Amino acid sequence: MRLNEITYNNAVPVDGYGPGFFRIGGEVFEGRVLTGPSGTANWGGYDDRTALLDLADDIDVLLIGTGADLTHIPQNLRSALEDANIGVEVMNSPAACRTYNVLLSEGRRIALALLPV
């Protein structure tokens, strides 16, 4: 078996999550979170589309975690992201965290917007 050390570029992986929080890069964030190549910060939710659109030059895909259950995001948000040439993948937050870590370890240009579980 061959083992490779995983290195992350500017972004850091999700270390864990629980009721109302996410641990990203060793730091705990309460509530909604946005993380990617420009760092990690609290996020205003679906109405905070500016924070997501500002990522357009740095990412190809945005993963959106919708909390404990998979739900649709507002169509106007999806349209705005697609118009900015940002691919959008929507899933529940636990699946989004796992997918983000895998894609991040592959060196992909991604970001992650999360609603708490």
Rank of each mutant, 00 (worst) to 15 (best):
T71Q: 11
G45E: 04
D60E: 15
A56V: 11
G67M: 09
D69V: 12
I6A: 15
D57M: 11
A56L: 05
I110H: 00
Y46D: 08
A80P: 12
E30G: 06
I86S: 03
S93N: 13
A96Q: 03
G25L: 09
I6Q: 14
V88K: 01
F22E: 05
I24T: 04
T50D: 15
R32V: 00
D47K: 03
G39M: 03
P94S: 13
Y17H: 12
T50R: 14
P94Q: 11
L55W: 02
T99E: 03
N42C: 06
S79C: 02
L103P: 04
A51Y: 03
A96G: 11
A84I: 11
A111Y: 00
F29I: 05
G25C: 11
G20R: 13
S105D: 04
F22S: 10
H72N: 13
Y8G: 11
T40I: 07
T99D: 05
V117S: 10
I24N: 01
N76R: 14
L34N: 09
N92P: 14
M1K: 12
M1N: 13
R108S: 07
L52K: 06
G65K: 04
C97F: 11
L70Y: 15
A95V: 07
L70R: 15
R78F: 00
L62S: 09
V88H: 02
L53V: 11
G107T: 06
L53T: 09
A96W: 00
P13F: 02
L103F: 08
A80T: 09
G45D: 10
L55T: 02
R2S: 12
F22T: 09
V28P: 03
N9F: 02
A51F: 06
D60W: 03
T40H: 12
R23F: 00
M1F: 11
C97L: 13
G20P: 13
L112H: 02
A95Y: 02
P74S: 08
P116A: 07
G39C: 01
S38V: 11
S38A: 11
Y46G: 06
N76S: 15
D47Q: 07
S105V: 01
N85H: 14
D69W: 05
D58H: 14
C97H: 08
Y100L: 06
R32W: 01
Y100C: 07
V14L: 05
A68P: 08
F29R: 08
R98W: 00
L52R: 04
I59H: 01
G44N: 02
D57C: 10
E5Y: 12
D58A: 15
I6C: 13
A51K: 11
R98T: 07
S93I: 09
E5S: 15
V117Y: 06
E106L: 04
I59Q: 02
N4M: 09
M1W: 07
L34S: 07
A113S: 07
D47W: 00
L55C: 04
L34K: 05
G45Q: 04
C97G: 14
L55E: 04
T35C: 10
L53Q: 10
T66L: 05
V88T: 12
E30N: 12
M91R: 01
G36Q: 00
R2H: 12
I86G: 09
A41W: 07
I110E: 00
E5G: 14
A11P: 08
V90C: 10
L103G: 07
A111S: 08
V14W: 03
I59L: 04
L114C: 04
G67H: 09
L63M: 13
I59D: 00
I59W: 01
